[in-house]
Nucleic acid binder design. Structure first.
Lengths: 131, 131
DNA sequence: GAACCTAGTTACCTTAGGGATACTGATATC
DNA sequence: GATATCAGTATCCCTAAGGTAACTAGGTTC
């Protein structure tokens, strides 16, 4: 069986690609994973690094990642509370493909943005030509 | 400069990762790219392969990929019409990281699904314990 | 001239994702 | 007793993504 073939169970909501690509597409999830790549980070630090995400949305993101077994949540019995988030082994294993994708992004996004501009301009001109 | 560092321009809507991760997260886009990995495919064929996507949504997806310079659209002057979609060089270069991610997905998604079940069960029990 | 083909549109609807804002609870410090 | 810290909740809102269903255009075949 060819290892690169495209799986046929695309309809299946549990289709591997579907499940993972959804997580990746999540606005903050992949960012959080990459931030956690350097070691455990507490909630408030995460908020600062991810800059303007609201606590509700950050919590949603973290819960989803925890549910998927990609990160762990550790509550320290302190006051004020301290909660650390950390990648699991599986979470860490995701870093590599994620980093590859990020590198691809960094080297190609300028071209993508140019393509968008060119496309949009062509569209505008077409509209002006036949109003 | 460390090649694996996390870029700071996360706020920037044009942040490379943001742009690419969004495309990947698109429900059909990454699937279409992988289908086109074997060569040009016409609209109707694409519909069959991607199985239940409606023409409107498929068109949206294809237009977005075309706009980003990842695929080309070729109209053949025939009747009935024939339109072929094909990866550009940039589109092809995306296949590699995408395939890596798919392989990661295929080997880890079963674990993810188990983790979800376990998490959800734990949640249910917690709710039953303190109603 | 009726029906069929492909590659789309058009109009409409529903839901989920994300966001803004304000509040809670437990404790320690002033 | 007022205030601060931290890690969240609760409530409400808005938009965009995705989906359904029906229709169009241009030409060909029966």
């Amino acid at each position: 069986m060819d290892n690169t073939e495209i799986p046929g169970n695309i309809l299946d909501p549990n289709c591997p690609s579907r499940v993972v690509f959804q997580r990746i597409g999540d606005k903050w999830a992949s960012l959080v994973i990459q931030v956690l790549g350097d070691g455990p980070v507490r909630f408030s630090e995460l908020r600062k690094m991810v800059n303007v995400v609201t606590p509700k949305v950050l919590t949603q993101t973290l819960r989803a990642l925890e549910r998927d077994g990609l990160i762990t949540r550790t509550v320290h019995a302190q006051v004020p509370p301290r909660v650390d988030y950390e990648l699991t082994a599986m979470g860490e294993s995701l870093l590599q493909p994620l980093t590859m994708l990020r590198h691809w992004a960094e080297s190609h996004v300028p071209t993508i943005l140019e393509a968008r501009d060119a496309y949009d301009e062509a569209q505008d001109e077409a509209l002006l030509g036949s109003p």
